[in-house]
């Protein structure tokens, strides 16, 4: 699938995050290369969400943490994080589609805003048209063109999550982060969402996916990372990690979830 000598796009070095006195991430380092699909697993409360949220600075990492994304240390509070976030998509457990916007507006809001900022002289109309055309193409890809003008409250969970994924895609991100994308779904809708993520993986998208779907992790990821108590306790190729876990904790964890 992926060879290991690919260019590193996201390099996390000594990431720490403390809430008040609670040390959630103690010292996390990982390099993620272009095209990598990294599955993040671990018991609940071990800091998986916090890790993802630090990657795009929804949480400010503690001083001294380094997150090199696209050659910029985005953990540095002085950089314009909005610009870097546009290159890093995020898909949430609870979808978080904009409730006051239609499906089409959900997808085009970010791209239109970004294009207007990047190119101040361009005609707004042209930018809007381009964003809409692109959004419709994406909707076609997931078979939801007929929902373009619907509001999120009228959609099923699976539809919402697929639209949330497409919303992230529309920004042309270099990396997409997923935080338990199927955990809030009814069982019969899990498949359609995993299928879409799998297609993205096949198209070469770089992704970090927090998931409890071990079968999916094994099949789609080229790297699995086991978090425990704020550190990466074990990492490696999924086939090896799942077949031959080293640490007691991972063995214990796998015996519970598999």
């Amino acid at each position: 699938m992926n060879d290991t000598n690919n260019e590193v796009i996201l390099s996390v070095q000594h990431l720490k995050k403390t809430f008040n006195k609670l040390e959630v991430l103690k010292d996390v380092s990982i390099d993620i290369s272009k095209g990598d699909v990294v599955a993040v697993i671990g018991p609940s409360g071990c800091g998986k969400s916090t890790f993802l949220r630090c990657l795009n600075c929804l949480e400010d990492p503690d001083d001294g943490s380094v997150i090199i994304f696209d050659n910029v240390n985005i953990a540095d509070v002085r950089i314009d994080i909005n610009e870097h976030r546009r290159n890093m998509g995020m898909v949430f457990q609870h979808f978080n589609l904009f409730e006051n916007k239609t499906v089409l507006e959900n997808i085009t809001l970010g791209p239109i805003n970004a294009a207007l900022k990047k190119n101040k002289k361009a005609s707004k109309k042209a930018i809007v048209e381009e964003a809409k055309t692109k959004a419709m193409t994406l909707l076609e890809r997931i078979g939801l063109v007929d929902k373009a003008n619907a509001y999120p409250s009228t959609l099923s969970g699976g539809q919402k999550q697929r639209i949330a994924i497409v919303r992230a895609l529309a920004m042309d991100p270099k990396v997409i982060l997923f935080d338990e994308p199927t955990s809030a779904l009814d069982p019969e809708m899990v498949g359609e969402v995993l299928q879409l993520i799998k297609e993205l993986a096949q198209s070469g998208m770089t992704m970090v996916i927090v998931t409890h779907e071990m079968g999916f992790a094994k099949e789609v990821a080229n790297k699995v990372v086991f978090f425990n108590e704020g550190i990466i306790e074990e990492e490696g190729n999924p086939k090896e990690v799942f077949a031959n876990p080293q640490s007691v904790r991972l063995k214990d964890f796998l015996s519970k979830v598999l």
Partner: peptide, 21 residues
């Protein structure tokens, strides 16, 4: 709060997310 976070994640600033979402 997820509405604000989603706004930030598509590159909107805090005030843009506030006003639009």
């Amino acid at each position: 709060p997820g509405q604000m976070e989603a706004g930030r994640c598509v590159g909107l600033s805090y005030s843009e997310s506030m006003i639009k979402i």
